[in-house]
């Protein structure tokens, strides 16, 4: 069962979320939709993120692979270079740096795609059509709990609550 409530201001959305959480709903059963980001209190809808962790890990991995790769290329098919060092930290440092940054940039982009749910089509079924200035709250709930949850939403200040069945 999916309830979609329509709100006019962020304060009532916040109180709706509080009320729903008091009824035992978890943050990942609730989605808020709007045409611009809504500022809610930090703890209200916690969306855990591993973006920084993954970005840093990826940076380290890319850096190490760059070092390994450059080291490998300079020793594979070795050419005679006379006096020149075949591998030198000073002058390949720039390359390692750029690879590190590339690793963290690409990981951030990938994590954006994953954490925004843009890669998961299944979850994004009934997204409300957005209207300027409105905030929509979508709740996944048991069929039996739909009526009290809707009441709870109206109490918090919802202008309209729609019900829909979830398929699959």
């Amino acid at each position: 069962m999916v309830l979609t409530a329509d709100f006019g201001d962020p304060q009532s959305v916040a109180s709706a979320i509080q009320a729903l959480k008091a009824r035992g709903y978890r943050a990942d059963e609730i989605d808020v939709f709007s045409t611009a980001p809504v500022e809610l209190a930090e703890a209200l809808l916690e969306r855990p993120s591993r973006m920084s962790l993954v970005a840093v890990t990826s940076a380290v991995v890319f850096c190490l692979s760059a070092i390994a790769f450059v080291h490998y290329t300079q020793h594979d098919y070795p050419i005679v270079t006379g006096g020149m060092p075949i591998f030198s930290w000073w002058s390949t440092g720039v390359i390692f740096y750029e690879f590190t940054m590339f690793g963290s940039i690409s990981a951030t982009f990938v994590m954006f795609l994953i954490e925004s749910g843009l890669l998961k089509r299944r979850r994004s079924l009934p997204a409300p059509l957005l209207e300027e200035g409105r905030i929509y709250l979508r709740l996944f709930c048991e069929a039996g709990d739909a009526v009290p949850a809707a009441e709870c939403l109206y109490e918090a200040g919802a202008l309209k609550v729609d019900e829909a069945e979830v398929r699959g």
Binding site: D31, V32, S49, F112, E115, G117, L118, L130
Partner: peptide, 12 residues
């Protein structure tokens, strides 16, 4: 326009 997307976008 879900808040997850906005969060991820702002964070990214």
């Amino acid at each position: 326009g879900s808040d997850r997307q906005w969060h991820a976008l702002e964070r990214a």
